[in-house]
């Protein structure tokens, strides 16, 4: 059972509480309640499906932010046979809000780059709540270039509430760091697979988000601005974030419909935070399928397709 429950998850929690009660009763009294418990579990799964089939966009945003959701390093631990972390941008420092390294997944070597959020206050301060500074983006680029040099594909895991908007970040060129990544990733000679595993907020997400395939896990969001940011600009009131989330159309389904992403990775019933291992399994399967497909393409075709894909994005009229 998850420690944190959103209001809309309450019906699920109610059944979970019933199950827990029966289980402890069975334990204490030695009565065989297997069939009752089994029925309740079926009921729970049905309730979860009901709740999740009716999620609105804001609820999807909340799920993407669930503190029990697996983060980049959690997935790395679950899906990689080997992982060696690489640190530092060789210019200024090492940004703990961005993790980079050498990974082996089922016999495939990959460079992994990904935003990293923290768990708990201390860890979150260390990880800056997953908000990278310029050195994070520069570290990511350095590691991608290393992959390019040795023909190793890139896996980018996106999970950020935004690039850090601080004094130091501005002084050290947050905009330049992101811009440079957009340009360099456009012409990187190895496959880039990008997966939104949680939050995909604006330039901070896009800064490691250019790729040949863009996938989103089911309970995630990706947008030009966070719902709160949008609400505070449009309504001067960040508490209207739920309305803003609706207007921004930021869910995986929305983005698949307009052709911005290439696919959605199904999460276990109720979301990744309810069954991390299954979520990791689906993620791994999807990574392997896509990397295998991309690896067959010669680099000039890869780059041409990539640039063409972005060149056609947009909606306008002309006459």
């Amino acid at each position: 059972m998850s420690k944190i429950t959103y209001d809309f998850e309450q019906p699920i929690t109610d059944v979970e509480v019933e199950i827990a009660l029966l289980e402890s009763k069975a334990m204490a009294t030695g009565t065989d309640l297997t069939s009752e418990i089994g029925k309740l579990k079926e009921k729970r799964d049905k309730v979860i499906r009901d709740v999740h089939s009716k999620l609105n966009r804001w609820q999807r945003v909340l799920l993407a932010r669930h503190p029990d959701r697996p983060y980049t390093l959690d997935y790395i631990e679950m899906i990689c046979d080997n992982f060696i972390e690489l640190h530092g941008d060789r210019q200024y420092g090492d940004d703990a809000a961005m993790v980079t390294g050498m990974a082996e997944i089922d016999g495939h070597n990959m460079m992994i780059i990904g935003h990293q959020k923290g768990r708990g206050t201390r860890d979150n301060i260390k990880r800056n709540f997953g908000m990278s500074n310029p050195e994070g983006y520069r570290k990511a680029l350095r590691v991608m270039k290393l992959g390019e040099k040795f023909k190793i594909p890139i896996l980018s895991l996106v999970d950020t509430p935004g690039a850090f908007p601080g004094l130091g970040a501005e002084e050290r060129g947050q905009a330049e760091a992101i811009a440079k990544n957009l340009l360099e990733m456009s012409k990187l000679k190895v496959p880039i697979l990008v997966i939104i595993i949680g939050e995909g907020a604006s330039g901070g997400a896009l800064g490691i988000g250019i790729g040949d395939r863009i996938l989103m896990m089911q309970n995630t969001w990706y947008s030009v601005i966070s719902p709160e940011g949008c609400a505070s600009i449009l309504y001067r009131d960040s508490s209207k974030a739920a309305e803003a989330a609706e207007a921004l159309k930021l869910t995986p389904d929305d983005l698949l419909e307009i052709g911005i992403i290439d696919g959605i990775i199904t999460e276990p019933n109720g979301g990744a935070h309810r069954d991390k291992e299954s979520a990791a399994d689906s993620l791994k399967e999807s990574i392997l399928t896509n990397i295998r497909e991309l690896q067959n393409l010669p680099s000039n075709i890869l780059i041409e397709n990539r640039v063409n894909k972005y060149s056609t994005m947009g909606a306008w009229i002309e006459n």
Partner: peptide, 16 residues
Amino acid sequence: GILSLMQMAKTSAKLS
């Protein structure tokens, strides 16, 4: 929405 964010990608990809 996201289409605007993608204009950053688009202009940068073209500049590449």
